[in-house]
Structures are given as C-alpha cells and as structure tokens.
Lab assay of single mutants.
Amino acid sequence: VFVDDHLLEKVLELNAKGEKRLIKTWSRRSTIVPEMVGHTIAVYNGKQHVPVYITENMVGHKLGEFAP
C-alpha cells in the first residue's frame, strides 16, 4: 500500500496529539489507511483543495477518487 511519507507523518502526528484539523495535500495517489479515519483531508483536484472527510468505508481507496 502506498502513502506519501509527508502525509502519513502529518496524520500520525495529529493522532498522537489527539487533534483533528484540516490537512492539505497534493498527493491524490496516496491510499487511504485506517490511521486517517476521522480526519478531514483537503485533496487538490488541479484547481482547488476539496475537503474530504475520511470514513471507514474509504480505507483501501485512493484520495484522488474522492476529489473529482
């Protein structure tokens, strides 16, 4: 499973602090992992960042699938 390192670091850091804030990313190719559930990730679609709230059903899919 591929997840960009910088994105995973941000998610794990927020989980350690117990925070839930918006994470901006250009990494549409990253796979959604269970650690991301409950976070809102702003995924770049080529024009703007689209906020995507991550749920359990999204695990295993790519971030780009949810930012048309």
Rank of each mutant, 00 (worst) to 15 (best):
S30R: 02
P51Q: 09
G64N: 06
E9K: 15
V3K: 02
T25E: 01
V37E: 09
A67W: 03
N15H: 03
I54E: 00
A67I: 06
G18H: 07
G60Q: 09
S27L: 05
V50T: 10
T40A: 08
Y53N: 13
V1K: 09
E9H: 13
K10E: 15
K62E: 13
T31K: 05
Y44N: 03
L63K: 00
M36S: 01
H61P: 00
N45Q: 08
E9I: 12
H39R: 01
P51S: 10
V43K: 00
M58E: 08
A16L: 12
I32M: 04
I41K: 00
R29E: 09
V11C: 05
L7Q: 00
E65C: 14
T31S: 10
V59T: 12
H6W: 15
Y53A: 10
V1R: 06
F66H: 07
P34G: 11
L63A: 01
A67V: 08
E13Y: 08
K47F: 10
R21E: 14
V1N: 14
N57H: 10
E19W: 05
S27H: 04
V43L: 07
A67F: 04
E19A: 08
F66L: 08
H39A: 02
L8A: 03
I23P: 01
I32H: 00
D5F: 15
Q48V: 13
V43G: 00
G18A: 07
P68W: 08
E19M: 10
N45F: 10
F2G: 07
E19R: 07
Q48N: 12
E65Y: 12
Q48G: 11
F2D: 07
Y53I: 12
F66S: 04
H6L: 15
I41H: 00
E65N: 09
V1H: 15
M58I: 13
V1A: 15
M36I: 02
S27G: 03
G64Q: 10
E9D: 09
S30H: 02
T40K: 07
V11E: 01
H39Y: 05
V50K: 12
R28I: 04
L12R: 14
H6C: 15
I23T: 02
V33E: 02
V43H: 00
G46F: 11
Y44L: 05
V50I: 14
Y44R: 03
A67Q: 05
D5V: 15
T25Q: 01
G38V: 00
V50Y: 09
M58N: 07
G64T: 04
I41P: 00
T40Y: 07
L7H: 00
H61E: 09
V43R: 00
L14S: 05
K17Q: 08
I41N: 00
F66D: 01
V59G: 04
N45E: 07
A42Q: 04
K17G: 06
M58T: 07
T55L: 14
H39M: 03
E13N: 09
H61C: 14
K10I: 15
L8F: 11
G64D: 06
T25N: 02
V43M: 03
R21G: 13
E13T: 08
K24N: 07
I32N: 00
I54F: 01
I54T: 03
K17S: 11
K24G: 02
H39S: 02
L12I: 11
Q48P: 02
H6F: 15
E56A: 14
H39G: 01
T25M: 01
E65M: 11
K24S: 08
N57C: 14
K24E: 08
H6T: 14
T31E: 08
L63H: 00
A42D: 05
P51C: 10
K24Y: 15
G38Y: 09
D5W: 15
H6I: 15
R21W: 06
T40C: 14
Y44K: 03
S30K: 02
H39V: 02
V43P: 06
H6M: 14
L14I: 03
K20A: 05
T25L: 01
I41W: 01
V50M: 10
W26E: 06
K17E: 06
N57E: 14
V52F: 07
N45Y: 09
H39Q: 02
E65R: 14
R29T: 10
T31I: 09
M58V: 06
L63W: 00
A42R: 03
E19V: 13
Q48L: 11
V52Y: 04
H6G: 10
P34I: 14
E35W: 03
D4M: 01
S30Y: 03
T40W: 09
K10H: 13
D4V: 01
T55H: 14
R29C: 15
L12H: 10
G64R: 12
G38A: 10
Y53G: 10
I54L: 10
K20H: 10
E35N: 06
A67L: 06
V50P: 05
M36Y: 07
P68G: 10
Y44D: 03
V59F: 14
L8M: 13
I41V: 06
T40V: 10
D4F: 02
I41Y: 01
G18P: 02
E35R: 04
R28K: 06
V33R: 04
Y53F: 13
V1M: 09
H61R: 14
E56K: 10
V11Y: 01
T31V: 11
P51E: 13
V43C: 06
I23C: 03
V3P: 04
N57Q: 12
F66N: 03
T31F: 12
R28C: 10
I32Y: 00
M58R: 10
L12E: 06
V1L: 05
V59Q: 10
L12P: 01
I32G: 00
I32Q: 00
F66M: 08
D4G: 02
A67T: 04
V3N: 03
R28W: 07
I32F: 01
L7D: 01
T25F: 02
R21D: 11
T40R: 09
V59K: 09
H6R: 13
Q48Y: 13
V52K: 04
E65S: 11
G60N: 15
S27V: 06
